[in-house]
Structure formats: structure tokens, C-alpha cells
Nucleic acid binder design. Structure first.
Length: 456
RNA sequence: GUCCCCAUCGUCUAGCGGUCAGGACAUCGCCCUUUCACGGCGAAAACACGGGUUCAAGUCCCGUUGGGGAUACCA
């Protein structure tokens, strides 16, 4: 059975890049009837914060990317990690290193100053006797040969062992390092496929050495390329890396966010719009592209607008009510919004845009723009007169308006801009007939009267 | 510096030895239209460069260049 996992360290909020990694893990598990597990890597006691753990749960929940089994907290497995470290020590696969942090950083500084590679000198590697004082446990990395593995996404990967360092497994305070804990935990959790960002590709080599030393069979690795910001630089808070919550606050639907992230690196013929449900059936990690991609807000907006258009009018009203609040409009107001939704949704790329445009219908008489041109005022007065004497009814606004134009010898383009502005407060709106129809004569009259009296 | 990974229109991508190099977003034009969208039609737009291998290379190999990542008792 395929078992994947997402293993974040709770040292910050999850951004859109991590979400893509989660998505691929989740999809790969679902596509193979496997499991997707969650492990919180909280071995860094300084930087790990409970609110970030909370943020991980919220994000997964918001997106509907559910995990299986119990959450594993790495910090609670310290004993096991120590056990394995000491076993390696006993077996001669690891050694005690008494070097202080100061010594090590001096070594590195020296190496860098002389344009050399800053790796550990291994001076404790061949110590024959134990000394007093604190020590770390380091792995006796293989000195010669090379390491090869086949990454599910990146293909054949290899390094020469001479470039590897004797990495620290256990810190001098007994706490395992990330590099070591990951291996033990993935092994103990029976993870079959490690899907993570390419920033970990180099770690795969290191971890493979640990697997070897422990005599564990390693999992498959799949290193997903990173997403870059629109300007090509690394995605970070500075250049607009946002959390899922922020995008949702801006009116993006989770389905659209996921769909967009999926298509960034994965494709299925010429299909652009793919639901996660469908994708569960067809997803294959091998089709994920190995190169990195840039984030494009335009494209995500486009996908979001498609998802919005595909939603039913009633669904959209409900979405708007939870997005903003139910009391934004009266009950009748919401009814009018639903009535006019067809014209609204084709003009909106996000829920925020949709909400803003819904105001045209949702609010009652406090929604108008004053008219400045005197010819416009005259025309609108004619319009008001006609409406008063002979209003349109619930299904003939278009015919009514055409009759009115004929009667008054006006062209639609003479009166439409002013009418639109007076009724909707905007130069952009759905079709005028539609608006008259959905608003009804009473509301239109109210707004028009306000629009012309304001200036008088 | 060293190590690792990557490289098709501006962007996301299809391609898996023989294609007029296809699609989507964005851009521009036309149609629809009172406006703005939606929709329809169309245009412009790419195989980073240099060597090989092959009858044939975007596709395979090697360099160069460019981009990214890693070089911690962080993860």
C-alpha cells in the first residue's frame, strides 16, 4: 500500500508552495488507494510555535485535504531516535564528536575564506577513546564510491560520496537533528513515498546514507520543483507568497486554488479544469514536471472565474453570504441578487468582485450616482414619467424600453449610460434590460429620483 | 567557491527520433453588444547556445550559458 506524508515544521504559516506539496502527496495516496499521513516536525524547540501547528490543521481542513491516522509529533519520538543513534554508535557506524560549535564554525569560516568547501574535518572520526565533556553523534559517511537513486520526478540522481559530510545525528543535548529524525520516522511510519520540495533533494543523499547505516530499506523519493514568484525569484512573503486563507479572503474558491496549483507542473492532455475528485482517479506522480514554475495571478484568476461561472446561482448566493455576511442585504435584496446572478457571475473573477457587483441588486434606494448633464436629466425625467404612468412588469422590460425609446425618439445609447450610472452607480454593469427587470419599477424610480434631486 | 537539480511562445504547458511544434492565460484585432464581461472567430508569440549520435533531434549524449536549490548542533 502506498503511504505518503506531509511533514511540516511549525515555524511559520503555510504558503501556497507548501500547499502544492500537500496536494501531490494527497493525490498520490488517493490515486493508489493508499494513506496520507501528517507528521509535525517540531524538533526545533526555539522556533516551533503552537499557533503554526494550528495553522497547518486549519489549512488542511479548509482545503478538504484530509489525512489518515493520528498526527505524529516528532518531538515525542526522541527516545526512539536516541536509541537508534546509540545503536549506530555501538555498531561502529557512528562516532562521538567532541568539537564545539565555535571550533566548527571557525573551521567553516577558514574554509570559505580560502575558497574551499566547508565540510567537517572529521578529526573526531578516528578517536580511539572516549573523552569527557559534551559530544554529538555523527554518522560515519562512506568515503568513496557514489550514491545513486531514481527520483520519481527528477529521474536519475547521484553524488560522489567524497562530497558528503559526516552529519550530526544527535545534538550534544541529546535532541535528534531533522536529518536523522526524518529517516527514523518515515521508516517507522512505513512511508513508501516521500514527496517534498526540491530544496530537500540534497538531503535525500544524506538520508540515504542514514538508511544504509541503519539497514532500513529506503522509500521512493519524489522531489517536486519549487514555485517561483511572478518576477522569477524565490516565492517568499516579500514578493507576494500568500497563505491559502489570504487567497480565500480575496474571494478565491478552494477548488480553484487547488486546480490551479495542480496544473502548475502537472497536466492531463489539454484539460485545464480538473476536479480533485476526478484527479484522484488519474493522478500519477511521474507526470509531474521536474522544472520549476512561476506563479501567475492572472491564470489563477482565470481558473477562479471559470469555477464561479460553473456554480449555480443559489450556490453563489450562499457562498457570498458566508464570504461576507448574511445581513449585508435584506431577504428581498438577496432574492434580487439571485435573480440577477447570471449577469453578475460572468463579470466576476473572485467572490469579492461578485459581491461588489451584487450591491447593484442587493441594496435598495441608497444605491445611485447623481447625474450631472442637463440633457441626461431631461431624458431621465421622461423615463420617470413613462415609468410612473405605465410601468414595466416582471417579464417585459426589454420590450417596454424599446417602446419608450420609439415614443420619445431617443436612441438607447443616448440614455443608457446615464441610466446605468444612476441606477447602478457604475459605468460597468450587466445588461440594462436585465437590471430593470430584476430591480423592478419601484426601486428604479427611487434611485432615479435620488439621482436627479441630489444635484438640484 | 563546491555540490545537486532544471531549461519549448511573456507565463503555465503538450511533445516522449519523422508534428505546418498543439492547447491555456495574458496581449492585439474582428464579430456579438447601450457599457463591461461572457461567448465566437482570428493574429502575433517558443524548442537558450555549441558540438556530437542518427538517413532524421525540441526529443538521445557531451560541453557552454542561464536559472534554482543546498552547503548549520534549522527544517
Amino acid at each position: 500500500m502506498i503511504i505518503t506524508r506531509f511533514a511540516p515544521s511549525p515555524t511559520g504559516t503555510l504558503h501556497i508552495g507548501s500547499v502544492r506539496t500537500i496536494l501531490f502527496n494527497w493525490l498520490y495516496a488517493k490515486a493508489n488507494n493508499g494513506k496520507f499521513l501528517l507528521r509535525i516536525e517540531d524538533t526545533d524547540k526555539e522556533r516551533s510555535k503552537p499557533e503554526f501547528v494550528e495553522n497547518i490543521f486549519i489549512t488542511l481542513n479548509n482545503l478538504g485535504l484530509d489525512y489518515d491516522d493520528e498526527v505524529v509529533y516528532q518531538s515525542q519520538r526522541e527516545k526512539r531516535h536516541q536509541e537508534v543513534a546509540y545503536k549506530l554508535l555501538k555498531d561502529g557506524r557512528a562516532y562521538k564528536c567532541y568539537c564545539t560549535e565555535k571550533e566548527l564554525s571557525d573551521e567553516r569560516d577558514f574554509a570559505r575564506a580560502h575558497n574551499q568547501t566547508p565540510t567537517y574535518s572529521r578529526k573526531c572520526r578516528n578517536l580511539t577513546e572516549d573523552r569527557d565533556g559534551p559530544f554529538t553523534i555523527r554518522l560515519k559517511t562512506e568515503l568513496t564510491g557514489a550514491l545513486h537513486f531514481k527520483d520519481l520526478i527528477q529521474g536519475d540522481c547521484s553524488v560522489k560520496n567524497e562530497h558528503m559530510d559526516d552529519m550530526i545525528l544527535l545534538r550534544s543535548n541529546g535532541v535528534p537533528t531533522y536529518m536523522f529524525a526524518v529517516v527514523i520516522d518515515d521508516y517507522d511510519m512505513n512511508i513508501t513515498t516521500v514527496i517534498r520540495g526540491t530544496e530537500h533533494l540534497n538531503n535525500a543523499y544524506r538520508q540515504l546514507q542514514i538508511y544504509k547505516a541503519c539497514e532500513f530499506t529506503p522509500p521512493d523519493f519524489a522531489h517536486v520543483s519549487l514555485i517561483h514568484a511572478e518576477d522569477g525569484t524565490k516565492l517568499s512573503k516579500r514578493n507576494g507568497a500568500k497563505s491559502v486563507e489570504e487567497y480565500q479572503k480575496e474571494g478565491f474558491l478552494k477548488e480553484a486554488i487547488l486546480n490551479y496549483l495542480l496544473r502548475l507542473g502537472w497536466s492531463y492532455g489539454e484539460n485545464e479544469i480538473i476536479s480533485m475528485q476526478d484527479c484522484c482517479k488519474i493522478f500519477d506522480i511521474k507526470n509531474v514536471r521536474s522544472s520549476s514554475a512561476r506563479f501567475s495571478l492572472d491564470k489563477m484568476l482565470n481558473i477562479n472565474s471559470i469555477y464561479i461561472r460553473n456554480l449555480s446561482n443559489l450556490d453563489l448566493v450562499e457562498k457570498l453570504q458566508t464570504f461576507d455576511n448574511k445581513n449585508r442585504y435584506s431577504k428581498e435584496g438577496w432574492k434580487r441578487v439571485e435573480l440577477g446572478m447570471d449577469g453578475l457571475k460572468s463579470r466576476s473573477r473572485t467572490l469579492s468582485e461578485l459581491l461588489l457587483m451584487s450591491d447593484i441588486y442587493g441594496y435598495e434606494d441608497n444605491y445611485y450616482e447623481k447625474i450631472m448633464e442637463t440633457t441626461d436629466i431631461k431624458n431621465i425625467e421622461k423615463f420617470i414619467d413613462e415609468t410612473l404612468t405605465n410601468p414595466w412588469n416582471t417579464n417585459n422590460a426589454e420590450i417596454w424600453l424599446k417602446n419608450f425609446l420609439e415614443k420619445t425618439n431617443l436612441k438607447l445609447k443616448n440614455i443608457a449610460p446615464a441610466l446605468r450610472l444612476a441606477i447602478t452607480k457604475s459605468k460597468v454593469s450587466p445588461c440594462l434590460f436585465e437590471i430593470l427587470q430584476n430591480l423592478g419599477p419601484d426601486l428604479v424610480l427611487k434611485r432615479l429620483k435620488n439621482a436627479i434631486t441630489t444635484i438640484l
